[in-house]
Structure formats: C-alpha cells, structure tokens
C-alpha cells in the first residue's frame, strides 16, 4: 500500500490522487490496480442532457412561431402560434410523463386525459369556440380513459393497490362533463351523461367485485 507523506496516512485501493490532499500519486505500471469501488459512468448526466435538449428545442420553436405570429398580426389576426404550443405540449406530456416515466399507469391515464382535454379545448376556443371540444371530444376522452382503466384493473392482479386512487379520481373526472353542462359551458347532454353513468358504474363495480379490498384500501388511504 502507498503512503501519503503529507497526510501521514496509508492509502488503500491505489487511488489516482490522495483522497485527502488530492496530491497526484504514481504507481509502477506492472502492479494490477485493486478496485474497492466501481468505475462510474455518467449515463444519468447524458439522459438529463437529452431531456434538457428536448425542452430547449420546444421553447425555441414556440418562441419563433410566436414572433412570426406577432410580426404578421396586422395581416392575420388569429393567434395561430397557440396550435404549435398545444401540439408541443401534447407531445411533451407523452414523452416525459408517459413514455420515459416509470410512474403508475393510473397516473399516466389521468395526466393524458387532462392533457388531451386541455389541448382540444384550447384549439376549439381559438377556432371560434363552436363547443365541439366540451360537447363531444372531452366526454369521449373521459369515457375512453375510464374504459381503459377498468380494463387495466380487470387484467392485472394488483389492480386495487396500483390503481385505486386513480380509479377514484376517474370517477370524479367522469362527472366533469355533466358539471360543464350544468354551467352552460357545453350544450349537448348525452355524451356527458354517458361519461357520468360510466363513472358511476365503475365505482359500483369496484365496490361489488373488490368489496373487502376496496374497504381496506379506503382505510389505508384515509387513515389519520
């Protein structure tokens, strides 16, 4: 073992520098290097760079579109850059939260539902607000999400533990279209009513098929 005369300590593991005074050490080349710790790689840093690059490119494209939109605003008074913004937003969510993320599938369904609903609403609003988003698109996105979460819960054993919270959230989300109708935001009732009915049935189904589990999960989630 080597010695650092300055620090008066013995050095194990043949370090490149003394870990205390950082003085560079030299070894005979024919001595095999002992390894007490692995040689680390920096993959994590590379991953984080790619995420930053995607975010940076998104901001640049949005800014360019916004600038062009402002410069030609006198000729064309629509805020068309919002479409680009919405599309990029809708692409970023699947990349960061759905594809790359190791989050629970329930969380992914909820975030996708919110993301897609918001995107359609913004496009509809910018197009003259003909209410196709709140009347049809949003209720149907919610219906598809509820059906998908029911399917996932039926197919996977650990359904209640994994998706309990999100299935409850989906039940509440199912009533949002009805709420929008009640507030006169939408004016077509049947898609909203279907979404509300489906979410009620999903809740009742949870209770019937996973009664004890459902109760246990409620105790866990709401213990004080």
């Amino acid at each position: 073992m080597n010695k650092c005369e300055k620090c008066k300590v013995t050095l194990d593991g043949q370090p490149l520098r003394c870990p205390l005074c950082l003085k560079v050490l030299s070894y005979e080349l024919n001595i095999p290097r002992q390894s007490l710790y692995p040689i680390y790689n920096n993959e994590v840093a590379k991953k984080s760079f790619i995420s930053k690059l995607i975010l940076c490119l998104s901001i640049i494209s949005c800014s360019i579109c916004m600038l062009i939109n402002i410069l030609i605003f006198k000729k064309d008074s629509t805020l068309s850059f919002i479409y680009v913004l919405v599309v990029i937003f809708c692409l970023l969510i699947p990349i960061s939260h759905t594809i790359k993320s190791k989050r629970n599938i329930g969380s992914k369904i909820v975030s996708q539902t919110f993301g897609a609903s918001l995107a359609f609403f913004v496009i509809d609003f910018n197009f003259g607000y003909e209410r196709w988003s709140v009347n049809v698109f949003i209720p149907f996105i919610i219906i598809i999400s509820i059906l998908f979460s029911i399917l996932k819960m039926l197919l996977e054993k650990k359904m209640m533990n994994e998706y309990f919270w999100y299935s409850l959230v989906m039940v509440f989300i199912g009533f949002i279209p009805m709420l929008l109708f009640a507030l006169n935001v939408s004016n077509l009732i049947w898609p909203s009513a279907v979404a509300a009915l489906l979410s009620t049935l999903a809740f009742v189904g949870n209770f019937i098929f996973a009664g004890k589990h459902f109760k246990d999960e409620l105790i866990r989630r709401f213990h004080i």
Partner: peptide, 25 residues
C-alpha cells in the same frame, strides 16, 4: 484531511484511507 491527519499525527494511530474518488476520477 485535518481530521485524519490529527488521528495519524497526534494520536499516532495507523490510519488507512480509501475512497470512491467521485469527482476526482
């Protein structure tokens, strides 16, 4: 460095150092 040098120099203990060299290697 001060901590281990004190142990080695003042208390005359035999101190063996090893590190994962994070940020160095």
């Amino acid at each position: 460095q001060y901590f281990f040098r004190y142990l080695a120099d003042v208390t005359k203990l035999n101190v063996t150092i090893y590190s994962n060299e994070w940020g160095i290697r």
